[in-house]
Computed example of a mutant assay.
Amino acid sequence: MHKNIILLGYMGCGKSSVGKQLAIMNQMNYMDLDDYIEQKEGMTINEIFSTKGEVYFRKIEGNYLNESLVNLNNAVLSLGGGTPCFGTNMDTIIAADQNPSVYLQTSIGELSKRLFTEKDKRPLIAHTKTVDELTEFIAKHVFERSQYYLKSTHKVVTDSKTIDEIVKEILELVN
């Protein structure tokens, strides 16, 4: 078994749900980078975005990614959807080669369906008004980000799979 497993992918792909279950089934610790940032900054991600802006957030996100990778031990780390796409974050993730990274690839339609009901809690998509507008935004974003996501060690397609099925597939890939 590897020391740590890093989950990445677009928001709504299941990083947190899958990560928590993966940690339980594999007797590992679980860490969500966004939760870690909120704890360290004493603010929610939404508050950081609205008071300090995305540039500030992306800067500290990279710092906290580095910090968390140094401190992780026998853990599953779920990244924010944008984490791999900014600064040198993906290089940092790749360089941590004893820690396999897994891209949870989810279709645009499935992401749109999952995210529409919770868009107000997500600063990057809160501005979208209709399902079509959200779908178009997600499609553009996933297209831009996939070049980073696809550099991960492994890829698991999540559509039409239960959390347990995804976890089992990840464990087969990383063991």
Rank of each mutant, 00 (worst) to 15 (best):
S101W: 03
K121T: 01
I108D: 04
P100D: 14
V76P: 03
V70S: 13
G12R: 03
A96S: 09
G12D: 00
A95I: 12
D91G: 00
T92A: 10
P123V: 15
P123E: 13
N71Y: 12
Q39F: 00
G82N: 14
R58E: 06
R122Y: 09
N74Q: 10
K151G: 12
I138W: 00
K20N: 07
G82L: 07
D32W: 00
T135Q: 14
S16I: 09
E110D: 01
S146K: 12
D32H: 13
A95W: 07
P123R: 03
S16E: 07
L22M: 12
N71I: 07
T130E: 13
D34K: 13
Q105W: 01
R58T: 00
N46M: 09
I48Y: 03
Y148H: 12
D32Q: 02
M11T: 11
S101G: 15
S107T: 15
A75K: 02
V102W: 07
G19V: 14
Y10R: 00
Y148W: 14
N89K: 03
Y30I: 04
P123N: 15
Q147I: 13
Y10H: 00
Y64D: 03
T83I: 15
K121F: 03
Q147E: 10
L79P: 05
Q105C: 15
G19P: 06
M25I: 11
Y30K: 01
M11H: 04
T135L: 10
D35S: 09
R114T: 11
V156D: 03
C13R: 08
I108T: 03
V156S: 10
Q27S: 07
I45N: 07
D120E: 08
C13Q: 13
F86Q: 06
S50E: 11
L77Y: 05
T130H: 15
A96E: 11
S101I: 15
D91N: 06
I60M: 10
Y148G: 14
D34N: 04
I125A: 05
N71G: 06
D34H: 13
M28A: 10
Q98E: 12
M90D: 01
D97P: 04
L22V: 10
F116V: 13
V76D: 08
Q98A: 07
I108Y: 01
K140H: 09
E61V: 05
M28E: 02
I108P: 01
G109N: 11
F86R: 06
I108L: 00
N89I: 00
F116D: 02
S50V: 11
Y103T: 00
G12K: 05
T88M: 11
V55D: 11
K129P: 02
K121E: 01
N26E: 14
H141L: 07
F116A: 04
L72E: 15
A95R: 15
R58N: 04
N71L: 15
I108S: 03
N29M: 02
T44G: 02
N73V: 13
G87R: 08
D32A: 05
H141Q: 14
A75Y: 03
G82F: 08
L77K: 05
A126H: 11
T44N: 03
L115Y: 09
S16Q: 06
G62E: 03
F86K: 05
S16T: 14
K40W: 10
L69V: 01
R122Q: 13
